[in-house]
Simulated assay, not measured.
Amino acid sequence: MPGAHGAGLHVPRAHVPAVHVEEAGDQGPLLLCLHGIGSSSAAFAPQLAGLSPYVRVVAWDAPGYGRSPDPEGPLTLDDFADAAAAVIRERGASAHVLGVSWGGVIALRLATRHPGLVDSLIVADSSPGSGTDAAKAAGMRARAAELAEAGPRAFAEARGPRLVSPGAPEDLVRRVVDTMAASVRLPGYAYAAESMASADLRAELPSIAVPLLVLCGDQDTVTGIETSQALAGAVHKSAYVIVKDAGHLANQEQPGRFDAWVLSHLRITARIPE
């Protein structure tokens, strides 16, 4: 879909997909949480509980995921960003946006496509997209066929354990697998995978003007520490934090440490009282 991302101008879709959200908290600024490609709003249960005394937390099921309806047709990264923008507009003038993995890529595009809606960014265990590397893009595009062949449960059993550190408790591994199995389905997952495979946000990252906090698990082998460091280095107002004893899903594996850094960021950017 055409657009001038840096200027925040675009040609909107005639119909922005509806989404299901989970919400907690009734005071403070809005924090919109965007999950990874194999997950749903359930991934943010720790943040809905831990951050809602300070901010209004909204976690979505992306279009075609979880309890959100299937989209009417293929969605690009811009379309996912527009759907996130609609969630913000429905609840207020702007939001702080937390994105994990694929959700981080959507958050970064949201900040360049709809800059007036984003007060700050928290991007965890993410990347500029899989389009930065041909092999990564091909692997991402192959995932839809893998899901179609294996089915959600077997697909989740194969992929889920890789998303946490080797020392993660078994109950966390099971929750990650169960969440994935309950959340992913076609065609939504295929549209998400293509949006990642086509994405290379490196050229537009320097145009992001809002404060950015980049978090990465010290044992993240999916996107990895170097990729997170590069994200932080490309944005002028950024901070970079390693989350100890965590894999790719740092917000779920070490929610106490993760939430403490998010809250610290929000106290600076949104002036939340101590």
Rank of each mutant, 00 (worst) to 15 (best):
F44I: 02
D78F: 14
A84C: 04
F155M: 04
V176G: 02
S228T: 06
W60M: 01
Y189G: 00
G151T: 13
A150E: 07
H5C: 12
R113I: 00
A192N: 01
Q27P: 01
E204W: 10
D26I: 06
H248L: 01
V57A: 10
L147I: 00
R162E: 14
A168I: 00
A14Q: 09
V21N: 08
G64R: 03
P211E: 14
I106L: 10
G139I: 08
V58C: 08
G131R: 13
G131C: 10
D133I: 06
S207V: 05
G233V: 11
V176K: 00
R56L: 08
S228R: 01
G217R: 03
G224D: 07
H96W: 11
R13K: 09
A156M: 02
P63E: 05
F80V: 01
A230M: 12
S264I: 09
L231D: 13
G36L: 00
D61Y: 00
L75D: 01
A18N: 13
V97T: 03
L163D: 02
Y191W: 13
S207E: 09
A107S: 14
R113F: 01
A49Y: 03
R56D: 06
H35P: 12
T112P: 10
A250C: 06
R141N: 08
D82G: 08
Q229T: 15
V243W: 04
S101I: 05
A59D: 06
S40R: 01
A43W: 01
A107Q: 05
V243D: 07
G217D: 05
A192L: 03
T221C: 04
T132A: 15
A193Q: 07
F258V: 01
S40L: 02
V55Q: 04
L205H: 07
L34A: 00
T269M: 12
M180F: 00
A85V: 09
P187S: 05
L266E: 13
A158I: 03
